[in-house]
Design a protein around this nucleic acid. Structure first.
Lengths: 207, 207, 207, 207
DNA sequence: AATGAATGAGCCTTCATTCAT
DNA sequence: AATGAATGAAGGCTCATTCAT
């Protein structure tokens, strides 16, 4: 299939798909998506040869859009601050685009997303992983792949998000406390890093 | 008297449904499930008037089967040991019955499980929640509903499970370290309980 | 099939069938009829080997129940009075048992009632027909089979009934005027019979 | 531009439906209709979203096709001639298109035709009704809604038709005598019009 | 004889995909 | 390239009928 040029159309389809998959589940028909995108039934298939292609591409797109929000790795801030920033970005994404977040969750557990697609998406987060790698170094997870900490990050952020959506008034405290929980989870030694007071206390003791 | 209603048949359908939903997603056809259960197409509908009923009942059943594995609350053991036991049970359930676990995960995010079904299932875990409530009391999550800690428990155990299934050789370490992460996540004061060294340090300071 | 003896049960099924066929059309399921008759699904088929048998037997039964209401032919009353009586009976039947009447109408146009059943039912009205035969003798229908007048009788009574059910307050006038229309329809000379005034008028003229 | 919507196809489906509903009753499957119309199963549902829609539209179509045969109201002919013409048209319709007529009869008593559809169809015959209104003015039906005479017209024509189909050789006499019966049924004064002898008799009296 | 569980053909409808225009 | 009509496989569900108890 000669790659059709109208990129807006593709975008429209993807956006419509998010809304419909969020509202009706992944079973939403291609026809309904096409209609919502103001596009003919058949046109959808010029951009996505198959519904599975649409699903996979949407998954990638969604992951990428999240990824795009993440600040580039900076060396001016502490590890904790960098991860906290990523955490906030993630929460914010899920909060401001609940449909996107929900569809991502559904696609994540779907049979129809290929291993390849998953792997590609994971790779996009490699730099976040490198931060995690450092953060995990002294903690109880140090002997396991960094991806473990990464998965924990996502799982805990998702959980936090679900409660924020349920109780928006608690957004700030949930975000902060959720991150605190995550930070505690992955590192022991890290706590020292973030709390120089401890060493100070020790000093105090000494004195 | 007519042929008595065969309860094994219902069981067979449920079991077949687990396998097929795990293999093909929740879209697996009722016909394929019936076939796998060695039952006629129509028979399935004598036990579950609707596919949605099957889905909901399966969800309840799965949650209950997990719940049944959990030891009753004991007062002889520490909070940490009790939660660790629940953690191990959860991991073991997911490891020995991966299909059941995966289907539970899919049902959990499905549109087709009613709020009622979810609520009923949640209620079955109320005693685990009471343990969590105590565990959370001094931690950073203390100001949030206990359900938050509960959700974190499940999310982190699921994540751990995924890595165990990927690397069965690391089952024991992953289980232990995953739990350590969880335990750290929910409690600050708790860590004192498991790490008397801290108080010793304090003593040292004093001296 | 050894004829089962419990005749009440058969009756119950037939009665339930009338209600359900009236409420839901002839598509009402045998199971729903059995339930309404307080009888097991399979029991129905001991009395009626087939749904078509039930349909046909119900048709016969309904026609017979109507027939049973008709007064036996009397020689004390005029032709007009006899037919008027039959007319009233028919209207009354339809009015007091609308379900029975409606189901009869539906069965009458159904593919599933055999020619044999129809013929048998028609035969039951042979004596009414003999009355009609006489009434028709001098009218415009005299050259056609009496069944024609009979069919007209039923068709016109049904029509009248429909309007009575719609406007019960007009029951009496509709009944009378409907019959007047019928009587006019089938006979010319008959009108003399019902209006002795005419001859009187003639006499008056003479005088 | 996509393939234009083929209106012949809709027509073909409607025609096939008439045949099949006539042959097998309204229970004939949409699949069999589609096949008979040389159209794919799914195509039928592009034209009729539901079997009920098909049923209702068919009913309207059938009534309209009958209506189309009726001559426009003329003022050159007597009331009797106008109604006789309508009668003949009706009979002819039923005789030349027995399937259409039969299906109309079945649809008329079906639960699946909406009140709306019925009302719309009835309205199409308003001008016939206005003729009937005049014809009824002096007869025994004068105190009832014109629709009563209209229903009688249809009922009596249907009955006549049934006998014509049974004995085609008598078509002409049945048509004429059936109408005579109808004409007598609805009007008393009308009979004067067709039988000047009466007034002559009166004159005779006077003399 | 009565029961009601079991059956499987069949029904209406949906939908991803193709293809004539 | 875009359209949307057409397709037919498949899905969920119903139901008359059979048959073990």
């Amino acid at each position: 299939m000669a790659r059709p040029r109208d990129d807006d159309k593709k975008r429209a389809i993807l956006i419509a798909a998010i809304r419909l998959f969020a509202d009706e589940g992944l079973g939403a028909s291609t026809a309904s998506i096409a209609r919502a995108a103001n596009v003919a039934d058949g046109t959808l298939f010029r951009y996505f040869p198959t519904k599975d292609h649409l699903l996979n591409e949407l998954y990638s797109e969604l992951k990428l859009s999240l990824r795009a929000r993440l600040a580039p790795v900076s060396h001016d801030t502490s590890l904790r601050e960098q991860l906290r920033s990523a955490w906030d970005v993630y929460i914010d994404w899920g909060f401001t685009e609940p449909a996107a977040h929900q569809v991502t969750a559904r696609l994540s557990v779907s049979t129809r997303i290929s291993a390849r697609t998953r792997a590609d998406a994971a790779e996009a987060f490699s730099d976040v992983n490198s931060r995690l790698k450092a953060a995990v170094a002294n903690g109880p997870l140090r002997r396991h792949p960094t991806a473990f900490a990464g998965a924990l990050f996502a799982a805990m952020a998702d959980t936090t998000l679900a409660f924020i959506i349920d109780t928006p008034a608690e957004r700030e405290t949930l975000t902060a406390d959720g991150f605190a929980a995550f930070w505690s989870a992955i590192g022991r030694g890290n706590s020292n890093v973030e709390m120089p007071r401890n060493s100070q206390q020790e000093k105090d003791c000494i004195s």
